[in-house]
Amino acid sequence: MALTREQMAMRVARELQDGYYVNLGIGIPTLVANFIPEGMEVMLQSENGLLGMGPFPTEEEIDADMINAGKQTVTAATGASIFSSAESFAMIRGGHVDLTVLGAFEVDTQGNIASWMIPGKLIKGMGGAMDLVAGADNIIVTMTHASKHGESKLLPKCSLPLTGAGCIRKVLTDLAYLEISNGAFVLKERAPGVSAEEIKEKTAGELVVPDFVPEMSF
């Protein structure tokens, strides 16, 4: 069975460590905040200038001056700090964020990522994605393994314009957790009940399958 969005978020949450500063992108990455293990302290960075993002406000707490990078109203967590956009991207570009989680359209065996532009469709912009992928050492890309039409999103070479070159090493899809190493995807974990053969079939880029590939459990 392919992982649900929640299971993908749960799997990513296992990469969190106590004391991590984490930037979560829009979509599945946002859900990771719901699965921070009990007793673990993690601070969420929002690139519009907030380190220590709290939960959504109550009706009474809503404040137009307090939003996240998705332009949603939020609160500040205990111990948060607020700063300018230049400061925010200094901490991102300077490699100070411990973990970045973001979505993508395509990833390839060279660690390239395409996530912002589909030629022929209206281009809204890259927002902070290019800065995030260029600045972070520890990035997890979350996406479905294949498109709705069954086309693999794990490619020998990205076909869409890039968001960043050679910057991705970890990918979690609805079928597998993979790492990129020496110009190939390496299958590290399988979704429950999904065979290595099925993953291989749906991976267009070169896939290395170790002798033993553990199955994820939830």
Binding site: I92, R93, M126, A129
Partner: peptide, 24 residues
């Protein structure tokens, strides 16, 4: 890119005509 945009303003205001970044 958002961080580049912020830095372009910061640098502009600080008298720095250009800067190198890995972004993009």
């Amino acid at each position: 890119p958002q961080g580049t945009l912020a830095e372009k303003m910061r640098a502009g205001g600080a008298g720095i005509p250009a800067f190198y970044t890995a972004t993009g």
